[in-house]
Amino acid sequence: MINFQYLRADTQKKAIDALAKDASAQFIAGGTNLVDLMKKGVTSPQRIVDITHLPLKQIEKVPGYTRIGSLALNSEVAEHELIKNNHPLLSLALQAGASPQLRNMATVGGNIMQRTRCTYFYDTEMPCNKRIPGSGCGALQGYNRMHAIFGASDKCIAVHPSDMCVALVALDAKVLVSGPKGNRRIEFEDFHRLPGNDAAKDNVLQQGELITGIEIPDHPFTKNIHYLKIRDRASYAFALISVAATLDIQNNVIQDVRLAMGGVAHKPWRLPAAEEFLKGKKVSEEIFREAAKIAMNGSKAYEHNAFKLKMAPAAIIESLKIAAKLD
């Protein structure tokens, strides 16, 4: 690791200024992803701006929303009464991610910003368009068992590794951003991007912009929820497939539903067509099967991840069944 300059930001403005002026600078909070990437030489910022002393740790209810500061720790959010009661899907997703120690370090903002765990991205001797644009995608013809089945391009087939983000995209969260040009509020769905021709860019954030928090609009999804994560071991592993499912059921009829998947795309993958299909239908395994089929439209597998085409719909059905307490 190169020896970088360390700056501690005591105000939001100073933090943003520091990055706006210097393309080689990066924010650090929990460090669980950035320090890892720096150790591997994937990124080598010359200046690190420590934002952990900014007052962005609150978890609070405001009319119409729950607002979570970007520096709130993953563990704090997961265990917070407000979140457990109002957004249990988020609690479940957070607890499915990483380890207790990492959740004590990782922040909400950092979790959103975390980069893919694609092995070709991590190994600086391998080609990777995300790391070195134009060098090629190592995974495309390589070991792509963990890789995308939706929305990939031949430039990049990596997946976004977060569990938290799968819940947030399902819950229609907004990302609150502050930057040199002022503040903006980005729909979660629009925050992460698909690789297209520019695999290097994970999201729509501009240089110098800082995530200050997220807002989750009030919703009725507190009873019928499930976050299903299928992985190679029982805990502390990235998802092969994960599914966030939550239903608003009245008299056995689905009033509303949210579905999103992890481990399948360059971004947390919302399933709008399947949701639309389910709305107004009576709860049954049959319609869940139908929804899963719809959800898989447009999926495409590679040499080592064809199993996901089978596992993903199975996971959707299973997660919906558990959420609907259909067993």
């Binding site: 360390y6 650090i28 380890s99 120690q101 370090m105």
Partner: peptide, 10 residues
């Protein structure tokens, strides 16, 4: 926490 991903300076 994991000390390995923690910068001491922070």
């Amino acid at each position: 926490v994991n000390a390995c991903l923690t910068l001491a300076v922070m």
